[in-house]
Write a protein that binds this DNA or RNA. Structure first.
Length: 389
DNA sequence: CGTTCCCGCCACCAG
DNA sequence: CTGGTGGCGGGAACG
């Protein structure tokens, strides 16, 4: 509520250009990048959902999507209702490390069956099994007092499909294995605990179906020399033309900035994977968090003019930061090779971010097709969301 | 015309 | 009950 459209905050800039409604302008990816640029500044420590919603000119509901994903990788953490604290990108390496350990552990105990994720919350770990959940027996479910196991079941359902959980599992898929590329379908099956989850756990190129969406993990930080072997032009095309109905000029300026971007966590969405892969991709991802004293350039997050977010003077966004402490950064890339622009997703323009939220939403959708399969085993992984105090 | 994915209704649940 | 959350179906934009 509240969020009255209040008339698109779009002030002007593009003046009369509202002829057609465009989903691109409203994409979560874009919103996410704006969100990041809005808060990735000095002095920002806590974020209010309402504040974010109004400043970004969107409904609350949308903010939740953003926040859930960011929280999954440590960038944010819930402080209280309506309040999140900004941990920054520097928190990503650690969060990933935790996820990795967690994932490996789970993976280990799984062995025969199919249960890939057990998931616990995030770094804080948990141990807060407020719920007895003695029922390790599928169906039985948790007789939560009086009525209905039905209730419990639905609760579990909700949890197991949560965006945050999904996000973490998705990431684990990459960091806990050696594969560097996973197709969307594959990912969905794996995350569901499909019997052969191990198949991907071993390096297996698995030639994905020709032109279905897939993802490639670029690893956490890499050698970042100068401009790695990253695809040069496809990216340009992507940034230059696509998305960006909002403000060309700005974007343009930025695309150059991207050239030097180096990101640490980065899942690249691509289509039709030709294994050619101009590089290893997986070779160095082992040293994910390796610390280097080098300072990287952190890209200017978000251009777009969205709501009058900018504070006027800093509309310029700080385009470079010293993340020595971070030592790692993100490096968006696209791998379109020579594909017909059939699948031109909304490449995360917002990639600046890392991997876009849309991806997870999409996965979620796929999930619903298999959900039943993992309902049973999930019953034991009940727990409440983090609760920092 | 098949697929992607944004909108926002409304189920949930802590307070 | 109220208000914060966030799953999910549906239909419109996209390619």
């Amino acid at each position: 509520m509240a969020a009255l459209p209040s008339s698109s905050a779009l002030p002007d800039s593009c003046s009369s250009r509202h002829h057609t409604y465009s989903r691109k302008q409203k994409s979560l990816g874009l919103l996410c990048s704006n969100f990041l640029s809005l808060y990735n500044h000095d002095g920002v420590h806590s974020i209010g959902l309402d504040d974010a919603a109004s400043r970004l000119g969107v409904e609350r509901r949308r903010i939740y999507d953003i926040v859930n994903v960011l929280e999954s990788v440590g960038v944010l953490s819930r402080k209280a209702k309506n309040q999140y604290s900004w941990n920054g990108f520097g928190a990503i390496p650690k969060a990933l490390q935790d996820l990795k350990e967690e994932g490996l552990k789970e993976n280990c105990s799984a062995s025969d069956g199919n249960d890939y994720a057990k998931v616990s919350d995030d770094e804080d770990d948990d141990e807060r099994f407020s719920n007895p959940t003695g029922s390790q027996n599928s169906t039985a479910a948790v007789p939560k007092s009086s009525s209905s196991s039905l209730k419990a079941v639905s609760a579990d359902n909700r949890r197991e499909k949560s965006l945050a959980l999904l996000t973490q599992n998705f990431v684990k898929l990459f960091i806990c294995s050696h594969v560097s590329m996973i197709s969307l379908d594959e990912a969905a099956k794996l995350l569901l605990g499909d019997g052969h989850n191990s198949s991907i756990m071993r390096t297996k190129t698995h030639t994905a179906d020709t032109r279905k969406p897939a993802f490639r993990w670029l690893g956490v930080r890499g050698k970042v020399k100068n401009e790695p072997t990253v695809l040069p032009e496809s990216r340009k095309r992507a940034f230059g033309t696509d998305v960006t109905n909002v403000s060309y000029k700005k974007t343009k300026a930025e695309s150059s900035a991207y050239q030097g971007l180096n990101h640490c966590l980065n899942v690249q969405k691509l289509v039709q994977c030709e294994n050619s892969s101009q590089e290893d991709s997986q070779n160095s991802q082992d040293q994910e968090c390796e610390r280097t004293s080098k300072s990287y350039q952190f890209g200017p997050f978000s251009p777009i003019t969205v709501a009058k977010v900018s504070v006027s003077d800093n509309n310029n966004v700080k385009r470079s930061h010293d993340w020595e402490s971070l030592s790692s950064t993100f490096r968006p890339q696209y791998h379109n090779q020579a594909l017909p622009p059939v699948y031109n997703f909304q490449l995360f323009f917002s990639t600046l971010l890392m991997f876009d939220i849309v991806t997870f939403i999409a996965l979620k959708e796929l999930f619903s097709h298999y959900v039943e399969a993992w309902k049973s085993w999930y019953s034991e992984a009940v727990k409440k969301p983090i609760q920092i105090s």
